[in-house]
Design a protein around this nucleic acid. Structure first.
Length: 198
DNA sequence: TCATTAAAGTTAT
DNA sequence: ATAACTTTAATGA
């Protein structure tokens, strides 16, 4: 949880219930609210000129969405779409800003959040620029596992479908599937009823 | 080597 | 039931 629910509610946050496949915000919208997920999964994406989905991230329980755009005058660079039914805390931008100005600890927490987002982006740029598909997927799995508590081999169940892995790394699904199988043969991952363990 | 296309099987809603 | 996901195979850049 980035910011405690009771604190957000004490400064005016409202909880909003959403169905799956609902829009939280769209590319080019003006950011007006701080969003934090209580429950559910939300993706950040774009579509490239050929119409292929570019998946930026999938966020869930306790995570904030698009907060970096609240510090700028522009618009959102991505869409935020729910992937399941969700409960989201929504706080007006001005109230969010006041909260940060009055609470250095919370402000630092948001700094930390944006920093980890930036770190992830650096990792992703390297992945996007790598040609070898095994290297791409291994680098992504390394990152995903590095932010987990459990570090034992094959204890990490990758929380993405092959389609999602493809859209995150810029590979096509088929290549992703073949590469995951090669990685299984080479003992880099295990596959247990279609779930990838790393 | 990887992407694309097509076709079919499987899982989730 | 229907859509979304997974898989295999053939072909092309």
């Amino acid at each position: 949880m980035v910011i405690k629910q009771c604190i957000l509610e004490s400064v005016g946050a409202i909880t909003k219930n959403c169905d799956s496949a609902e829009t939280i915000f769209l590319e080019n919208d003006v950011p007006k609210f701080y969003y934090q997920i209580i429950n559910g999964k939300i993706k950040l994406n774009n579509y490239n000129p050929e119409g292929k989905e570019v998946l930026h991230n999938i966020l869930e329980n306790g995570q904030s969405i698009g907060e970096s755009s609240l510090f700028l005058d522009g618009t959102y660079p991505v869409n935020a779409i729910t992937l399941s039914s969700c409960v989201v805390l929504v706080l007006r931008r001005s109230a969010f800003m006041n909260l940060l100005m009055n609470n250095p600890k919370i402000s630092l927490e948001i700094n930390k959040r944006i920093s980890s987002f930036l770190h992830f982006k650096h990792v992703m740029v390297q992945i996007i620029c790598t040609h070898n598909p095994t290297a791409k997927l291994t680098a992504l799995l390394d990152y995903l596992k590095s932010i987990q508590k459990i570090q034992e081999p094959f204890a990490f169940q990758v929380p993405f479908t092959r389609q999602e892995l493809a859209n995150l790394t810029g590979l096509c699904v088929e290549t992703t599937i073949r590469t995951v199988k090669i990685m299984e043969r080479n003992n880099i991952v295990k596959i247990r009823n279609r779930k990838i363990l790393y």
